[in-house]
């Protein structure tokens, strides 16, 4: 894939170049340069196109499309819905992020079984999962809008509080929590800069960075995937997809970083 070759070549140059102690600067400059080079081209567009088709296609045991799915702004409203999630949904009586909500519609409108939804939430480069396509379609429809995540419902406050506590909970053989790496300013793992997700400024930047097309894996990764991979690196067991714990952590980050402009699916190394 031409994107991949171009960006990887460029990133490799940035990573192996003569970097000094402040090595992050050339690396980041490298990434920015390639983003610039690609302009608005992001392979996530392929996911978006497939996602739109899936959204409109009748499927599942109930042979229904997702066009009547209520993402929070009423049945069928896709534009602007993403920037107002995670949120409390009265019909499900719980706080959900957008990925969970789309799956909820697949289960309730199309009759897809929960077992099927859980079978393969995270795809591969060769075979993306349907939710990755659908989510990319839905989030792209909020491009250019400001994150405006609701925070007033008691369950939304509760989710923030639980998410904050889960984020800070140290456990496992390495005593890690999310906060071990993402709780202070200006830290790095190797050359990778770590946003301090407990503070608005970093959380704003980081939150709108997902979902993202990753050049190194040639695919779109969702926020549910990102949280899953963080817990993997914490050496903990696997957080269940769409669970309250995962949605709470996402809600904590979203509310902490509220207000940033959403620029569409990101492009990452």
């Amino acid at each position: 894939m031409k994107y991949r070759i171009a960006v990887l070549a460029a990133l490799t140059a940035a990573w192996t170049g003569p970097v000094l102690a402040q090595a992050k600067d050339p690396t980041i400059a490298g990434i920015e340069k390639y983003r610039e080079m690609l302009g608005d081209d992001n392979p996530a567009e392929l996911y978006e196109a497939r996602g739109e088709q899936l959204w409109k296609k009748k499927a599942g045991p109930k042979n229904a499309s997702l066009e009547q799915c209520d993402l929070g702004l009423g049945p069928g409203v896709v534009k602007g819905a993403y920037v107002q999630t995670p949120r409390y949904y009265a019909d499900a009586d719980r706080v959900m992020d957008m990925e969970t909500r789309i799956n909820w519609c697949r289960m309730n409108l199309q009759g897809v079984s929960e077992a099927d939804i859980r079978k393969r939430p995270f795809g591969s480069a060769d075979k993306p999962s349907e939710i990755e396509d659908l989510l990319t379609y839905v989030v792209t429809a909020s491009k250019g809008m400001k994150m405006n995540v609701p925070t007033d419902h008691p369950k939304e406050r509760e989710a923030f509080q639980l998410g904050q506590a889960v984020f800070h909970m140290r456990a496992g053989p390495y005593d890690f929590s999310c906060a071990t790496c993402h709780g202070e300013d200006n830290l790095r793992i190797r050359l990778q800069e770590l946003p301090n997700l407990t503070k608005a400024e970093d959380a704003k930047r980081a939150y709108v960075g997902w979902p993202a097309y990753r050049v190194s894996t040639s695919r779109v990764h969702t926020m549910q995937w990102r949280i899953n991979d963080c817990f993997r690196q914490q050496r903990l067991p696997e957080p269940r997809y769409m669970s309250e714990a995962v949605n709470a952590v996402i809600t904590y980050m979203a509310q902490t970083g509220n207000g940033a402009e959403y620029k569409g699916p990101a492009l990452k190394r």
Partner: peptide, 13 residues
């Protein structure tokens, strides 16, 4: 509450 969420929402892998 957070510890209960850990025990409820995580699976061995």
């Amino acid at each position: 509450h957070a510890m209960a969420a850990f025990k409820r929402d995580f699976d061995a892998k």
